[in-house]
């Protein structure tokens, strides 16, 4: 069986198991329908819906993370060819990383890593 065929079969299986658990909960549970509730914040009712434009303070860190994540796309195939390509592979990759680390150092100095 090819590698990804096994994965597809496993995915189908696990989804079936999840459906079976929900079916078992519906059949065997004490109540068939869910309980309508108010979201819990300690006992007093909330004033608004929670769906809102959440102020995510770590947006600068998310941009930095994207830059590094794109770099990782290069690093994964790089591991396959280190000794084949020789020292230039190591030098190039770690120079690239040093440049990115300079960016991290700048972000750190600017306080992007401390948001609360």
């Amino acid at each position: 069986m090819s590698a990804f065929a096994a994965v597809l079969v496993l995915l189908a299986m696990v989804l079936l198991v999840a459906a079976a658990i929900y079916a078992a909960g519906w059949l065997l549970g004490v109540a068939r329908s869910p309980l309508p509730v108010v979201p819990f914040t300690g006992g007093l009712p909330p004033a608004e819906h929670a769906f809102s434009r959440f102020h995510v303070r770590w947006y600068a860190l998310a941009m930095l993370f994207l830059a590094f994540d794109m770099e990782m796309i290069f690093m994964y195939p790089w591991t396959l060819v280190i000794s084949a390509v020789g020292p230039s592979a190591v030098i190039e990759m770690f120079t690239f990383l040093a440049v990115l680390l300079a960016g991290v150092a700048y972000a750190w100095r600017e306080g992007a890593l401390r948001w609360a």
């Binding site: 065997l28 549970g29 869910p34 509730v37 108010v38 769906f51």
Partner: peptide, 11 residues
């Protein structure tokens, strides 16, 4: 948990 009831929050 299997025998428990699920909950539905508004909206």
């Amino acid at each position: 948990l299997l025998a428990g009831q699920r909950r539905a929050t508004p909206a």
